[in-house]
Design a binder for these strands. Sequence first.
DNA 1: CGTGCGCTTGACTTTTTTCAATAAAGGTGG
DNA 2: CCACCTTTATTGAAAAAAGTCAAGCGCACG
Lengths: 226, 226
Amino acid sequence: MKVIDLLAQIPLFQGLPPEQLQEVAQIVVERTFPKQQLIFQEGDEGKGFYIVLQGKIKVFKLAPDGREQILHIFGPGEPFAEVPVFAGQQYPASAMTLEDSKLLFVPRTAFLDLIRRNPALALGMLAILARRLRQLAALVEDLALKEVPMRLAAYLLYQSEEQQGASELSLEIAKGQLANLLGTSPETLSRALRRLANDKLIASSGARIKILNRRGLQEVALGLRR
Amino acid sequence: MKVIDLLAQIPLFQGLPPEQLQEVAQIVVERTFPKQQLIFQEGDEGKGFYIVLQGKIKVFKLAPDGREQILHIFGPGEPFAEVPVFAGQQYPASAMTLEDSKLLFVPRTAFLDLIRRNPALALGMLAILARRLRQLAALVEDLALKEVPMRLAAYLLYQSEEQQGASELSLEIAKGQLANLLGTSPETLSRALRRLANDKLIASSGARIKILNRRGLQEVALGLRR
DNA sequence: CGTGCGCTTGACTTTTTTCAATAAAGGTGG
DNA sequence: CCACCTTTATTGAAAAAAGTCAAGCGCACG
């Protein structure tokens, strides 16, 4: 598939006139990464941002002792690492592939040029950053105001939504990674899962989860049930 | 002072041609709020964003049980609550004055119009959102990967920077509010302060803090010293 | 000068982390 | 396709960090 056709699928570029799409196609660089590959590290100079074509990317903060907190996981169609394009010049976090992935790299200066000539693109990017702020604010809320079982219940319900409201859902990421996303340890996550299963809210086998009592799970997520 | 002169001082509007500045002046609304006044609540429809002229504003998330996590505190010159202007239509958090405050309200549709005609303004707003993402990512990092004394030490050093690197600094906000900002309880904050004082890193009397051992405080902030 | 709110302190509980050992799962090469 | 080996997940027990409850103190404000 040609780059320009891929670009036409990206929400950010929806409605971009074909000649500008062509321009984008000429400045982007396609890059592939194997699973577990570091894409950039916090503090690296950010000369552009990325768009996921295939695969899955985690963006995370690392503590000196090696513990990590995932800020976000990105899948196909999603742009990430835009922050250094617009403010500062260094990446505020690190990024790594969770699977073999194919990315487009969009160089900073060329993209800024384009945005200056196209207000719709600017508004599209503003919408993306605004949504990201919403998500990060929700993560802060989770970490500061909710306990692990609440966060886990919320994540399961969210995944269920993502998967067409199915009651049988897949965790999508390894449990260790989920622990890093929920801001806890694998041990605590494991115990939280067991607790939900004991309470007959879910049935769990490996990365496959079946929601047995959606109402009850929602109550846990909201803190109405301990 | 006239609105247009106030606007000219706001970083976001730096470099805006005078006629567009005039346009902004015509669409903004000046509003004053007493201390402790709720400006908007999470979930309210956001018809525009605000700019602080005077005073201090906290933006926060509230748990059902009343606990709160402050996401950010804004002072003069800073815009806030831009998220619903660009994505979704509801505020993702609540906002309240910490002091008597004077704000400018910038209505959404008029501002979007303006931004469509002015790429520099769009880039300015992108830079603001990008910086905010950086700050929120740092807050997530603090909450997930650092203990309370580390966060407190980092806050004290940050305040010292803000106050021209002075060793004698003011907390700027009430301790109860600082606890909500650092993601902890007043009790735990109190104990953390006493611990730093016991270790002769700071001397504290009320909201006045004197840094006695900056190096040591930095070590605490980085987790090199327990 | 009193009153009240915010801050501090102590005692206790809960949640989560950490350490260690075991069990299960997944990938690789024979 | 199976056996092995490495990685990942689970479980138990103990420790640490922070939260909660309750009481006392003190400063600021009326």
